[in-house]
Simulated assay, not measured.
Amino acid sequence: MKEILKLDYKRVWRTYTGGKLIDTMHQKKDASDSHYPEEWIMSITEAINPEPTKGEGLSYIPDLNMTLKTYIENNPEETLGKAFYQKYGLTTAVLVKFIDSLERLTLQVHPNKKDARIYFNSEFGKTECWYFLKGRTIENEKPHVYLGFKKGITRAYFKELFDKQDINGMLNALNKIEVNEKDCILIEGGMPHAIGSGCFLVEIQEPTDYTIRVEKYTPSGLKIDEKLIHQGIGYDKMFDLFNYKYMSLSEIKEKYFIKPRRITQKEKEIIGYDTIDYFKLKELNISKNYLSEENIFYGMVIIEGKGIIKSGDSQYTYEQGEQFFIPYQTQTIEIIPEIPSRIFKCFGPK
């Protein structure tokens, strides 16, 4: 058993375009936008796309020539911990992504756990949390999101807008909110939303790719495959997944804009189990040797910095953009930064 698993970084095809800032993070000289605007982290989830590619989205362990999913299946208790494995089975029950949007994503919704069981026979919905990094201004517009229905929006009215493909009408049915670096927003299953252009963020979520879309073409003109619109449940039932309950903009910000909690001088909790049981995200800022001690498996993503990470017989150099998986059995790792480092630690459910 390896104490530290170094993962490759998997880019995933999406209907929207972006990804230049992910290239830049990896210090690519030819950074550019494309239909690969997401990088999936510690992933055991396969992407749902119109032309499925076997294994697309799954994290890979180059040293062992296998996916993280296969490694966990071969070593469940050592990797996940006996209690977690008995509760959730052969899954980390979490997925993490980098998302960089050149264009606005289509208006969409994800199922909550209840609806995921009913419509997709899944124990996991797709509640998610966004933590914003440095974005970019696109066509004089700053990074922004669309979130929650405005007052008076009903199922019948919103479906009518969909049937007419009244894009402006659907956009106007949601609150448009400008976002800034270090904003953290919780998106519960059922909440209508869209990430706007110019956003660069880390997303932590339940481990599925179920997305209901209400636009038949992306803003840049790509026709969206029918199955990617309703995910196989049909054009009528898909409207059952939206939460039409009205919340004022101030109520949305109060409930869903999450304030980080300082744990130590070097570590803060961006979102934790006191907010939601589904996942936890920590941020570590260090300039000197640091011992990371946890009693659960987790993923590590290097946002900034360079150095060495080691535990037992495992030792790796790290630099920005790289990702690692720390199994349950590895209670302690040592991080030795050569230059100041900003690191995210990503955890599954409670």
Rank of each mutant, 00 (worst) to 15 (best):
V109F: 04
T79P: 05
P327W: 02
I229P: 01
T53P: 00
V109M: 09
K182N: 15
S43N: 09
G198L: 06
G135I: 02
E51P: 03
R104P: 04
V202P: 07
K126G: 04
D23L: 03
K280E: 08
D166H: 10
M1H: 14
E181G: 06
K255A: 14
P111V: 06
T332D: 08
Y210T: 06
I326C: 00
P219Y: 05
Q205G: 07
Q315V: 12
T92C: 15
N172F: 07
F124G: 01
L21T: 12
E215Y: 05
T45S: 11
K113A: 13
G19K: 08
M42Y: 01
P260K: 11
Q329T: 11
Y246K: 04
F279D: 00
I303A: 13
K159R: 10
N75D: 07
I296H: 15
E269L: 08
F200T: 06
K150C: 09
L201F: 10
I270T: 03
Y246N: 04
S122P: 00
T137L: 12
G135L: 01
Y71N: 01
G198V: 09
S34R: 15
D115S: 10
I258N: 05
S122M: 04
N295H: 13
Y256M: 11
Q231H: 11
M1G: 13
K255P: 12
G198Q: 03
K28L: 14
Y328T: 00
Q315R: 12
H193D: 12
E206L: 03
I326L: 08
Y278M: 07
F324I: 01
Y298R: 05
L58A: 05
E39R: 13
K266Y: 14
Y36L: 13
F162D: 04
Q108K: 12
L161T: 00
S34H: 12
D30M: 09
T17C: 07
I167M: 04
M300R: 01
G81V: 05
K69E: 06
I309N: 00
P52L: 10
I22D: 01
V145C: 10
K237T: 06
P207T: 03
L64K: 09
D183I: 06
D225K: 08
N175L: 09
Y328E: 04
N172K: 11
G232N: 12
K255F: 14
A83M: 13
Y244K: 03
T332R: 15
S43W: 00
S314V: 03
K114M: 13
D225P: 02
K126D: 10
I303P: 03
E215T: 03
M238D: 06
H110C: 08
G321F: 06
K182E: 15
P337K: 02
K182W: 12
S197Q: 14
F124P: 00
E178G: 09
K2W: 11
P340S: 07
P207C: 02
E334I: 14
E283N: 10
I153Y: 00
D100T: 13
I41H: 02
R117T: 12
P219F: 09
G135F: 03
T91A: 10
I48K: 11
K114P: 05
P349T: 02
Y16N: 04
V179F: 06
F124L: 06
I4T: 04
L64G: 01
G221N: 08
P111E: 11
S32I: 13
E322C: 03
E188K: 13
G348T: 05
E206C: 08
